[in-house]
Design a protein around this nucleic acid. Sequence first.
RNA 1: GGCGCCUUCGUCUAGUGGCCUAGGACGCGGCCCUCUCACGGCUGAAACACGAGUUCGAGUCUCGUAGGCGCUACCA
Length: 505
Amino acid sequence: MAERRVRVRFAPSPTGPLHIGGVRTALYNYLFARQNGGDMVFRIEDTDSNRFVPGAEDYIIESFKWLGVEFDEGVSFGGNYGPYRQSERRDIYKKYVNILLESGKAYIAFDTPEELEAKRNEIKNFQYDASTRMSMRNSLAMPKEEVDRLISEGVQYVVRFKIEPNEDVHVNDIIRGDVVINSSILDDKVLYKSADELPTYHLANIVDDHLMEISHVIRGEEWLPSAPLHVLLYRAFGWEDTMPQFAHLPLLLKPDGNGKLSKRDGDRLGFPVFPLEWHDPKSGEISSGYRETGYLPEAVINFLALLGWNPGNDQEIMSMDELIKLFDLHRCSKAGAKFDFEKCKWFNHQYIQLKDNTELAQQMLVQMRAEGVDAPVEKVAKVIGMMKSRVSFVKELWDTCKFFFVAPTEYDEKTRKKRWKEESPAQMTELAEVIAGIDDFSIENQENVVMKWIEDKGYNTGIIMNAFRLAIVGEGKGPHMFDITEVIGKEETIARIKRAVENIK
RNA sequence: GGCGCCUUCGUCUAGUGGCCUAGGACGCGGCCCUCUCACGGCUGAAACACGAGUUCGAGUCUCGUAGGCGCUACCA
């Protein structure tokens, strides 16, 4: 087989926000393109003018920008194979439709949607194909003069692909192997509508993939049943030699139950199914996005990459560069994958641990300042270093770190009951005095002095430290006590102890 | 209904005829670490859809059954 430059495309319809399943499809295309030093094309398939949703195209572009999936050419990226928006390629499709018409591989049909609907109601499993087409209103069944007359009268028509029956069509799929479908079960697909002078998906797709020199079509499994039709189209055009290789990816399924993951599942389960928050222009409805929910793009990418593919070993945390190196279409699974939000959250947790503390500090400072609290970024970063192991989202950081910057105003009920003993007020008052006497407020020295005091007095370490924690933090969690006091300082430590003694009953 | 695809722990998966007493990860339970909560370490429960066949030997190959999903539009 001749060496061919790898060129793949991601070609969504601008019918709404980009579904997370679409993101994965695009990701796999991207990984494959990068690994092979090929091109990633962004094409907009807007051949159904009725379903166009304003803003969808920009949304998709912004989503990939956030996720770090880059395109080499296409809508908004330029390139030598444009235009990349199908609605701007009318003339091109018209030309190819005519080629099919002239060679007798397609024909004109006048049946209206209503007539077809009636036919389907009338005959149980009606299909517009070799067995029925001669009884329909089309250029095969009607005299030429009549066809010409109708066209000249401006009667709307469609162009249908004439599928020859009883032929086994083979699709060689990289993931699924040889898939065979008999052409008799295919219907004479509508390729073109005179009403809007636009092709349907199938024709536009084949023409564009061919003209754009696409080498591999990596798409969702929902396209597998129409793949034989596409093979037949390539053949009809005489393009079989350069037909792209197909790879049909397994679907992303609902976390609970079965079926394709849908927009509704996100709302229902309280988790996003879109990369970015989406404001529906018609309904005004808002759907949550991964970005706004606080997911890191690296985490979303990593998680998605592993939904339907794995590197063959136990490695789970992989950067985009590593994914590009390791990705392999042959290692994609065939069965649909249920979307597990818990695991996605775990990935986010992992990536927060990997993230630079100063960078996280800058993000947390935005929240802090919004609440009227400020602090040097170095100090915030230091606190985050101690605290980030206990959060899964950046936005949780402020809540868990807050006590470092703001003294507790209330004390957790449960902890108070469990940790604040009868003797605690007296002991804490004493502790405040001990701390007041410490000059070297380093973690180590504080610990030495306090522990010595506990030992000398014969106190119970747990009782002292837990009460101390309640006084400083307001609840029973957090890093080691002296790590905290070293950050908040001696005066604040003493003030908090005193306040606790006064307020905790 | 027709056609196609698929089927290993609850979930994502490893597994390409003997290395499988089926491995890892998420989640869940226990223990350890410890002044608490996380992190981390150790550990437990948890799966080859079913039935035939091929073979000395089957999670792995074949067939059948069941189930799931997808497609079946002048949507993509």
